[in-house]
Amino acid sequence: MNIVVLAGSNVGEKSSIVADKVMTELNVKYGVDHSYTLLDLKDYEMQFSDGRNYLDYTGDNKLITETIMGADILIIATPIFQASIPAALKNVFDLLPQSALQNKVSAIIATAGSNRHYLIPEQQLKPILSYMKSTIVPNYVFLLDTDYTAGKINNDDIHFRLEKLIEDTIVLATAYKGIWEAQEEAYGF
């Protein structure tokens, strides 16, 4: 399977730290069984969506949208800014067509400065992913600023929950892939 890890902010470091941790975990636990791509929005120069078809964009916009469209699994690591998802992440969704995530499994990892923002993924990110036809892993991992020290995740429970989220995501994607393939074969053409 083709797995894309999206660090959904063009500023800060916490999304990048957790995205790197996910990439490391994927490589260690699943090795060459899958292909992995890290899209850290800090590393790209993106234009704001202006309503064009995603195929009409060039440069980093085209690279990011085509990489996401080619994924089987999308793991999103995002900070919470002002009780909302970052504009850079929302822009990625705005660039994609409505059914861009159909037959893809999505997982969420969110970092915030306050535990009061725990439900932001439920209220903002899950509805967007659902609207775009993604199959969403029901649980997500939520980290606080206090879970990081000197550029690393310092909470053992977070490490365990990340490992479990990755495992659940791969299991769900594998199961759905089999179901979707059987459904396609049933059409007989």
Rank of each mutant, 00 (worst) to 15 (best):
residue 158 I to D: 03
residue 156 D to M: 13
residue 114 S to K: 08
residue 98 Q to R: 14
residue 121 P to L: 09
residue 131 Y to H: 14
residue 141 V to I: 05
residue 121 P to E: 02
residue 128 I to W: 03
residue 159 H to R: 02
residue 118 Y to T: 06
residue 97 P to Q: 00
residue 133 K to N: 10
residue 100 A to I: 08
residue 127 P to S: 07
residue 136 I to W: 04
residue 96 L to W: 09
residue 102 Q to R: 14
residue 157 D to P: 14
residue 103 N to M: 12
residue 91 N to Y: 02
residue 88 A to I: 06
residue 160 F to M: 13
residue 127 P to I: 05
residue 90 K to A: 05
residue 101 L to I: 03
residue 141 V to Y: 06
residue 101 L to R: 06
residue 162 L to R: 00
residue 150 A to Y: 12
residue 155 N to F: 03
residue 137 V to K: 02
residue 129 L to Q: 01
residue 103 N to W: 10
residue 158 I to P: 11
residue 90 K to T: 00
residue 108 I to K: 06
residue 132 M to Q: 08
residue 152 K to R: 13
residue 157 D to N: 15
residue 167 E to F: 11
residue 125 L to K: 11
residue 149 T to E: 12
residue 106 S to Q: 03
residue 141 V to G: 01
residue 116 R to S: 05
residue 133 K to I: 00
residue 110 A to E: 04
residue 110 A to Y: 00
residue 126 K to M: 03
residue 112 A to G: 12
residue 100 A to L: 01
residue 102 Q to I: 15
residue 126 K to P: 04
residue 167 E to L: 14
residue 147 D to E: 10
residue 166 I to E: 03
residue 117 H to C: 08
residue 115 N to H: 14
residue 157 D to R: 13
residue 141 V to C: 06
residue 99 S to A: 15
residue 128 I to E: 01
residue 135 T to W: 07
residue 120 I to L: 01
residue 140 Y to I: 04
residue 159 H to M: 11
residue 117 H to S: 10
residue 92 V to D: 05
residue 116 R to T: 10
residue 140 Y to W: 12
residue 149 T to K: 10
residue 160 F to L: 15
residue 96 L to S: 05
residue 101 L to H: 04
residue 137 V to F: 01
residue 148 Y to G: 08
residue 145 D to T: 12
residue 96 L to P: 12
residue 89 L to I: 04
residue 112 A to V: 02
residue 164 K to I: 06
residue 112 A to W: 02
residue 150 A to P: 07
residue 89 L to K: 10
residue 133 K to T: 06
residue 124 Q to G: 07
residue 122 E to L: 06
residue 146 T to M: 09
residue 146 T to L: 12
residue 109 I to N: 02
residue 133 K to W: 10
residue 116 R to H: 12
residue 139 N to I: 01
residue 130 S to L: 12
residue 130 S to F: 09
residue 107 A to D: 05
residue 167 E to M: 13
residue 96 L to C: 07
residue 94 D to H: 14
residue 122 E to D: 14
residue 93 F to V: 03
residue 114 S to N: 15
residue 93 F to H: 11
residue 135 T to S: 15
residue 160 F to N: 12
residue 111 T to I: 10
residue 131 Y to Q: 08
residue 156 D to C: 07
residue 128 I to N: 03
residue 154 N to P: 02
residue 138 P to R: 09
residue 145 D to H: 05
residue 99 S to M: 14
residue 119 L to Q: 02
residue 99 S to W: 06
residue 91 N to K: 07
residue 153 I to R: 13
residue 143 L to V: 04
residue 129 L to R: 03
residue 162 L to P: 02
residue 119 L to E: 00
residue 161 R to C: 01
residue 131 Y to V: 10
residue 130 S to M: 14
residue 151 G to T: 10
residue 105 V to E: 08
residue 165 L to Y: 00
residue 93 F to P: 03
residue 122 E to A: 02
